[in-house]
Design a protein around this nucleic acid. Structure first.
Lengths: 374, 374
DNA sequence: CTGAAAGCGCTTACAG
DNA sequence: CTGAAAGCGCTTACAG
């Protein structure tokens, strides 16, 4: 920990580097250790077989100076920057933070940092922004809705690319969760276990593929069951509570009767819906049931507890990072299209009876491979 | 947009660079434009006064090749990396995302990205981790609880440093919000407007200075008012709903009567508390009032709506970035200790009557400069 | 206004 | 095992 020893050693005789703000360079270390910069580099990176004595002298000098290699120089010379770019769409879905925090910690163990950059949905120069991000990174993780397929194709020729919630291509790995299966399980629960005949789908921001996929799965089930599904322009939210609240108020004012259950594009939306319903004297779930999607941590602490579909947010990020890391290391990825399960979490807002125990959580079905069947 | 033109131009004759994954370099541009790399660099960076024709040829070549400068090379040669490191403490406070997302967008306009790295509260090598982050950045924003004062002092000699929720030093700028004033306003509201005589403070994670400051302000007010304040080991949460729920259950089981109002270290904590109270048949706010801190977006959508203190999270981040950006540009910062106001947002969970209008929000007092007085 | 050249701080063959 | 040297892709005085 001599790095932060307090200045005695540090201020002594080693402040040659005219440049920088006084950061010691590999030359300073070499001089202090009495070896060449090549040797310093070798012991630092564990290459070759430095003599124990050399090793000692170098480490000691490193410790005394508090030397940390400059990442730009290392990047330029070794061709690796130790940075993975993550391009997400703005406005951010609420689970973005949850998706990239755990992988960030994970990545640090491998010496790489995640550089998250958001690209506005309406940014005309999205391709340039992402390209610039690519130049700061060793590889790219790109969320859906950021780039067009042909742009992704071009990009993937220049750097390794992993997409999230997108589509796998020959040059590109995709990681996503099984939205459709999750929604299918939820829809069946609503249609068959509860017998609801009249549903509404409160969509997410613009035409997010996630929201679309969920709607399609829901619509298919409703059709099969012969139930009525309301959706369309007046049912378009923006993935956040405030937006959903406005939509719900308008729905209430429209004098058209509300459906028996409102299926929301995500949990935040459900929160806004439940809030407005309650304020307006509509009881959830007795008058109108409400469901979410994502299972954010506080979903289980709402009143009534929120029935939703759990997405493995952190896991998606970690797997995407692992895949990209492998590609950067020129490994051939095992799978090109990785689909993680999404599972129905049945609580009370759908109309199910409260369970005993405050922490009781009812996970009902696994999305993965939960296709066809009865 | 020829960058993503689709490969015709791109695949033609320009794939000389043996290195990299095929990324065009400044040499490729110079060759295609028929000028020197120096000229390319100049028009790219707007230095000197390139002839219009030169300018044109360069931009055309840049467009055709989809050239974007390599950040590592630029960083090494110009001494600026276009990256600002943000060191936050892990586990993350819930407002971290809200604090750094808006500034991230903001920073991009200035061509810099925010590299957020979390440092575990118990990480023994925190100084090294931050030092390594410094080597990837042009400057550092460091949250409280990440580094010791002497470590910060050392660091600030090597790179520009701005602290958040910390303490300003001669070499370092600090940005924070006025916790004490905010809590003071809340405490007075509780003590004098509502007349509560018995309070409890459900603290945040370990000994976070924020949580401490809030407790101290609350304790001082309670003392002045001659009210009873419960706190201590059995009142220690971790800033999140689940942790608060556990604490509350234990409190309930302890048979000691609950205080009239539970003041929570943040909103998430309040959420967990309210959930458990309701489940246990305790009515909020009639039996026990509950308050939060931060004013996260969904605070106004809870039932009852949460009374809390609003922290200007995004603003803190933006101001910290601006200050650091100035320091990187070798400007002298105008202020060394920037304190942003925190204001009481009075809703229903404290016992105030519901307001009309779903969006109605009662902002009562401004923390800044709301010192002494009656 | 433009080009040739040096240099940023590393890593890595290449000789010893 | 170790050192001298070249080179990574830029920027920037310095001459023309």
């Amino acid at each position: 920990m001599a790095v932060f020893a307090g200045g005695e050693q540090a201020d002594s005789d080693v402040r040659h580097t005219a440049s920088g703000a006084g950061m010691p360079t590999i030359y300073d270390v070499a001089r202090l250790a009495g070896v060449s910069i090549a040797s310093v580099s070798r012991v630092l990176n564990g290459r070759g077989n430095p003599r124990p004595e050399t090793r000692d002298r170098v480490w000691r000098a490193v410790g005394e100076l508090g030397f940390v290699p400059d990442s730009a120089a290392r990047a330029l010379s070794a061709g690796l920057k130790g940075i993975v770019g993550v391009a997400v769409r703005r406005p951010l879905g609420p689970h973005i933070a949850g998706t990239w925090e755990p992988p960030g910690v994970w990545a640090q163990r491998r010496g790489v940092d995640l550089l998250v950059r958001s690209v506005g949905i309406a940014d005309h120069d999205a391709p340039w922004r992402v390209m610039a991000l690519a130049r700061k990174s060793d590889g790219l993780i790109v969320h859906d809705q950021v780039l067009e397929p042909d742009q992704l194709a071009w990009l993937s020729r220049l750097v390794p690319v992993v997409t999230v919630a997108g589509t796998a291509t020959p040059a590109t790995v995709n990681v996503g969760s099984d939205n459709r299966a999750g929604m299918r399980a939820l829809a069946r629960h609503l249609l068959y276990d509860h017998g609801y005949r009249c549903l509404g789908y409160l969509a997410g921001y613009s035409d997010s593929p996630d929201s679309q996929a969920r709607l399609e799965a829901l619509a298919a089930q409703a059709r099969t069951a012969g139930a009525v599904l309301a959706s369309g322009p007046q049912w378009r939210g923006n993935y956040c509570a405030a937006g959903a609240a406005v939509v719900t108020e308008r729905l209430l004012a429209a004098a058209t009767p509300l459906p028996r259950v409102i299926v929301c594009a995500n949990d935040q939306t459900a929160l806004g819906v439940m809030y407005v319903l309650r304020r307006s004297g509509v009881t959830v779930p007795d008058d109108v049931a409400v469901t979410g999607f994502d299972d954010i941590p506080m979903a289980r602490h709402l009143e009534p507890r929120l029935t939703t579909v759990r997405q493995p947010a952190g896991e998606i990020g970690e797997i995407a990072f692992e895949a990209l890391h492998a590609m950067i290391g020129r490994e051939q990825p095992a799978e090109r299209d990785i689909v993680l399960p999404a599972r129905l979490v049945c609580r009370e807002s759908c109309g199910c009876p409260p369970r005993t125990g405050i922490a009781g959580d009812g996970i009902v079905a696994t999305g993965r491979r939960s296709s066809g069947g009865g």
